[in-house]
Design a protein around this nucleic acid. Structure first.
Lengths: 93, 93
DNA sequence: GGTCGACACTTGCAAAATGCAAGTGCGACG
DNA sequence: CGTCGCACTTGCATTTTGCAAGTGTCGACC
């Protein structure tokens, strides 16, 4: 499997990169991600589980039933790729 | 819609970026893409149609019922993003 | 002139992913 | 004790993806 295929295998699912992009601004809570992105709640829960399993993000317990999601170093390393893709998306010629 | 969401809207579908990556090496024929990538033929046909409609690639007629797919400038502009993603995928720490 | 093979798809259908709406558990607060 | 906010889960319809087989066309060969 090529390197690109490997990358897409972990962050190629729908909403995955958008979640990571949102977390580039710092840790966010579940409800914030849901409202900001408009992602269906069950899909968000699935993605967060997958991205955590892939070592892209971690859960930070805040209070009782409140936690925040934060990028790991591996997650932060996606910044370049996300910026490149976003710039391409902005060039609607 | 954010720039990233716009980008993913056109190249976020499964196999789309892998097709583009393959075309970075130069124009390829349908059968080549299919064999090299292992993508299901109906999905490949759909992606090529979508990517052509999005202005990412064009069809080059070669002989009778043979044509090649080549990236447009807009398609070539994806190189940076693809390289960044592939490098991230290669860093399996 | 008929047959065969290569090429680029299309079609039919099953499986998986996604989306929507409603429901669940649980601690805090009144 | 009841209600609220938060982080999910669950059930089900819709869409996407994948697999296998079939179609049309043209050139080469017999």
């Amino acid at each position: 499997m090529s390197d690109l295929a490997a990358a897409l295998d972990t962050v190629g699912a729908r909403w995955a990169l958008l979640v990571v992009e949102r977390l580039l601004d710092g840790p966010q809570r579940y409800g914030d991600l849901q409202r900001d992105l408009g992602v269906p709640t069950n899909v968000l829960a699935t993605r967060l589980r997958e991205l955590e399993a892939a070592g892209v993000l971690t859960r930070l317990p805040l209070r009782h039933n409140t936690r925040a999601y934060a990028l790991t170093d591996r997650g932060l390393a996606l910044r370049e790729a996300i910026v490149a893709l976003a710039r391409w998306g902005a060039e609607q010629t």
